[in-house]
């Protein structure tokens, strides 16, 4: 088990170098001079431009710039943004917020998806199933930002149940509305997945055998159906997590959540390589770890794939 985890963790190293190099290059290759853009339509003094370029190593060739960045990272210095803030501080500030949002969205949507999906499967073809299908189709076909705007206007402005935006109130409670709208985007897929895997499990021989043992439906469904049906859901979590991080950018913008999405978007617009690269790299590494976690959880749920003999 230990060696398995170690191996998976070591995989992060090539992923780290690959991701940073690639993203750094992509930012480097973006057309335009980010320093000149800082001055808007006003053309700054060339001497000042040169000095600022030198400060951010923007006057160096790509390899040198990348080298500076990597050397910094080894000293836990992820560089500074153009506004003079250490990127590591920006990361520390924004990531917990986005993580909170993502965890809440996953928790809310999965909880609902599992319950509704399970009942849809049990009542396959009945009214409940059909209504839940229509609702999930609506959810999946309406773009995230439309849902966000609708929710913001309806619950924030018209009904006044929530504050339309989050801002400083970014604790668990404050993120409820954005988390719900973000969750809506993944609910539909998760619900359909639960439903189909539950239908499949319901048809398994061991379910009939469980009934033949004299077990009641109240026991067979949670013990012999739900747990097996959850396995594909868990695998799906890793992918969902990735999708969420992307969807968070839109949601964060609309609900003014001070998370990674908005900061990253601004940094891309400003060609701030250290910020962009550090953020995306943390994304990538987080993704790798979530996958590891999911694989371990998978083993926990399904004894056939435990890693130790």
């Amino acid at each position: 088990m230990g060696s398995y985890i170690l191996r998976r963790v070591l995989q992060v190293i090539p992923v780290f170098f690959g991701a940073t190099l690639l993203i750094y290059f992509m930012v480097f290759a973006m057309p335009g001079d980010p320093i000149a853009a800082l001055f808007g339509d006003r053309v700054p003094n060339p001497a000042l431009l040169e000095a600022l370029r030198a400060q951010y190593h923007l006057d160096e060739p790509f390899v040198v710039q990348y080298f500076y960045y990597i050397m910094g990272v080894f000293q836990l210095d992820f560089g500074t943004s153009f506004s003079g803030q250490p990127v590591i501080e920006v990361l520390q500030r924004t990531f917990p917020v986005t993580l909170r949002l993502a965890v809440m969205a996953i928790a809310l949507s999965f909880l609902l998806a599992i319950v509704i999906g399970l009942f849809s499967a049990i009542f396959k073809g009945k009214l409940f199933d059909q209504v839940s299908l229509i609702v999930s189709l609506i959810f999946v076909s309406v773009p995230v930002f439309v849902i966000c705007f609708l929710a913001q206007y309806t619950f924030g402005v018209q009904l006044g149940w929530f504050s339309p935006t989050v801002g400083a109130d970014n604790g668990w409670l404050g993120l409820t509305l954005p988390a719900i709208t973000l969750g809506v985007g993944i609910y539909a897929t998760s619900m359909r997945l639960t439903r189909s895997s539950t239908i499949e499990t319901l048809g398994q021989d061991w379910v009939r055998t469980a009934y033949s043992k004299g077990l009641s439906r109240g026991r067979v469904v949670p013990v012999h159906v739900l747990r097996n049906s959850l396995i594909p859901m868990v695998t799906d979590t890793a992918t969902t997590f990735g999708i969420l991080m992307v969807g968070a950018t839109v949601t964060e913008g609309i609900f003014n959540v001070p998370g990674v999405g908005n900061t990253l978007y601004q940094a891309i617009l400003r060609h701030e390589a250290p910020t962009v690269v550090s953020f995306v790299t943390v994304f990538v590494i987080a993704y790798v770890f979530v996958n590891l976690l999911v694989d371990l959880l998978y083993g926990l749920l399904d004894p056939r794939i435990r890693y130790v003999k």
């Binding site: 021989d205 061991w206 009939r208 469980a210 033949s212 004299g214 009641s216 097996n228 396995i231 749920l301």
Partner: peptide, 22 residues
Amino acid sequence: EALRGRRVGYVPQDPMSNLNPV
């Protein structure tokens, strides 16, 4: 449900698929 198992036992066909793997 009360009758199954207690008064009528059942042995299924395929031992590979009749036990819950988890």
